[in-house]
């Protein structure tokens, strides 16, 4: 459906100034770029990185989530978790398609994405490297991790890249179900026994640093590289990492406190004059280690993906064109 041959990648934005200017004009005018439109290589590369990481994170997030299905306390909750797992796999498939179309000029396919994931070249979100311990974690992940995802994804609902922006419309609608399901689990625990309230607080304490890390460091100084400026320049997203983190704190900290919960940082407060939440920085070196697949559950989660990939290899072979002869 899309035609790449005439409009393959170029060596950089400057080699084709006229095309580049036209491209920027379209973006500034709010037009959407389609897969076969000319685009600067910097834009293509940034999109591939962002969208393949987003897509694979949806799938890597579904893996720990599905472990809750047998353990969820009621049939209704089991069904809720199952629906969420299915949604996340669906999100992953949508996003991988968007990334794959962008990778075409490089001759790369889904197989490369899976192999890049297993080799560590393709990273997945820091939160999905973390262990889950109690049922409160299932609620916390839905409420605050999906909540954080909603903040960062709705920020890109008007992204300049058409296929990504269209995928996000669908994804964001469904994320709301996840956040509501998580919230319902949290509410039940918050109104429950002393033990239930205790596991809730313990869960929040554990997830707090990961939630702060979710939006990435405020600037490249912290971790050595950051794509946020390119993302904003090309109107892929509107806000920078810190603005997103502030929006998250703004939305959720009042809710956390109103449930009688605390966060494991005594310095947390809202600075009226600066109009921002003050908080202690998480350990960004730890963040770097985590996303390099050195987090507490990185290896196990990758192993799950690898096992699924290997176990289903016979299906891919049996249904291939060569085997069927079509």
């Amino acid at each position: 459906m899309y035609h790449y041959i005439e409009y393959g990648p170029t060596d950089g934005p400057r080699d084709d100034q006229e095309k580049y200017d036209r491209f920027m004009e379209r973006i500034e005018a709010g037009e959407k770029i389609e897969a076969d439109d000319w685009m600067p290589e910097e834009y293509r590369v940034a999109l591939i990185k962002l969208i393949s990481m987003h897509g694979i994170s949806e799938i890597m997030g579904a893996l720990p989530e599905k472990e809750w299905t047998p353990k969820a306390p009621t049939m209704k909750r089991k069904l809720g978790i199952m629906a969420k797992v299915q949604d996340e796999m669906g999100h992953g498939q949508l996003l991988l398609r968007v990334a794959e179309d962008l990778m075409k000029p490089y001759g790369k396919t889904r197989k490369d994405l899976m192999e890049d994931l297993l080799s560590g070249d393709l990273k997945f979100h820091n939160v999905f490297h973390m262990p889950t311990k109690t049922w409160a974690d299932a609620g916390m992940v839905g409420w605050l991790v999906d909540g954080a995802a909603i903040i960062s994804q709705t920020n890109m609902l008007d992204a300049s890249y058409g296929p990504y922006q269209r995928a996000l419309q669908r994804i964001c609608q469904e994320e709301v179900f996840h956040a509501q399901h998580g919230e319902a689990i949290i509410m039940a625990l918050a109104e429950g026994t002393e033990h239930q309230r205790a596991i809730l607080q313990e869960s929040l304490n554990r997830w707090w640093p990961s939630l702060l890390m979710f939006f990435g460091p405020a600037s490249a100084d912290t971790t050595g590289s950051s794509k946020q400026d390119i993302m904003i320049k090309y109107k892929i997203r509107k806000s920078n990492n810190e603005e997103l983190r502030q929006a998250f704190l703004d939305k959720y900290l009042p809710r956390v406190f109103s449930l009688g919960l605390t966060v494991p940082d005594e310095t947390v407060h809202y600075d009226e004059k600066e109009e921002r939440w003050v908080y202690q920085q998480p350990d960004w070196d730890e963040f770097k280690r985590i996303i390099k697949n050195k987090g507490p559950r990185s290896k196990e989660r990758l192993r799950l993906r690898e096992v699924a990939y290997e176990n289903n290899r016979w299906v891919r072979q049996a249904l291939s064109k060569e085997a069927i002869g079509s």
């Binding site: 949508l94 995928a167 069927i324």
Partner: peptide, 22 residues
Amino acid sequence: FSLLAPNEEMALSMAMENFMRR
């Protein structure tokens, strides 16, 4: 949207899974 599948039948059932859940 688009999807990847080995044949029409699987494409159809994946379309139901991927896009028509609700």
